[in-house]
Design a protein around this nucleic acid. Structure first.
Length: 211
DNA sequence: TGTATCTCAGTTTGAAGAGT
DNA sequence: ACTCTTCAAACTGAGATACA
């Protein structure tokens, strides 16, 4: 799904706003010249003006600097409303079969099933992981995407939750009792925590992690 | 206290440079 | 020739400082 000129620049502007920066501030953070994303750079000279595009290298540096995946960037690009972003899906067992990768080992466009990245909706938000209690699965600085609608938590799910005391936690649901739950850390150096159900403001499954 | 001036970080435009 | 990046100069607004 190619992105239009408008979508690319909308996404860059949206990403800059999300980071609390202007377009030039975003460029600077990415190690680019601060003028790279100026409005005057978005169209070439001449009448009519020709649309200009950021290079793929510039785009990759911005994504690296903001910790965003290409899929999340593509979602920012669409200001028309919620949209599922399909990406190729293949089971690991099948990934060794012939016909799914080219000579360079890159995925071919044909023959793959598809899965959808989460669409933009009000119940979605992201959290930045702090501390190493979830290492090595989630590392400090990783961003997880949580869906507040995804409350059907099962044992073993990775969840984010907020307590009445003001803590926000990202853990694994080890025991889901009627009156209390036990949250395990992936890192064995951190002991499990037991939290009473009535102390939980909300708890939802972690859908995606952006590294 | 209120006003004028200075400084600086952030941002912008237009032109030139580099690569193809 | 064309496209994207970089450079130089200028603009803008906020905060600090000086002074009546």
């Amino acid at each position: 799904m190619p992105l239009s000129h408008t979508q690319i620049w909308n996404a860059i502007d949206a990403l800059a706003r999300r980071e609390g920066l202007s377009a030039s501030g975003l460029a600077r953070r990415a190690g680019l010249d601060p003028t790279s994303f100026n409005p005057s750079k978005r169209f070439g000279a001449g009448t009519p003006t020709r649309p200009r595009w950021p290079s793929s290298e510039s785009l990759m540096r911005v994504l690296q600097a903001t910790g965003l995946s290409l899929g999340e960037f593509a979602d920012l690009a669409d200001d028309a409303g919620p949209r599922a972003l399909p990406i190729p899906l293949l089971g690991l067992a099948r990934a060794g079969d012939e016909g799914f990768f080219d000579d360079a080992g890159l995925p071919l466009a044909e023959g793959w099933e598809q899965t959808a990245l989460p669409t933009r909706k009000d119940s979605l938000f992201s959290l930045r992981i702090e501390g190493d209690s979830m290492a090595p699965l989630y590392r400090p600085g990783d961003r997880v995407i949580v869906d507040l609608d995804a409350t059907d938590v099962r044992r073993g799910d990775r969840v984010a939750l907020r307590t009445r005391s003001g803590e926000t936690l990202a853990k694994e649901a080890a025991v889901l009792g009627a009156r209390e739950i036990v949250l395990a850390s992936i890192n064995p150096e951190y002991p499990p925590r037991t939290i009473a159900r009535d102390q939980i403001l909300w708890m939802a499954r972690i859908l995606w992690v952006s590294q």
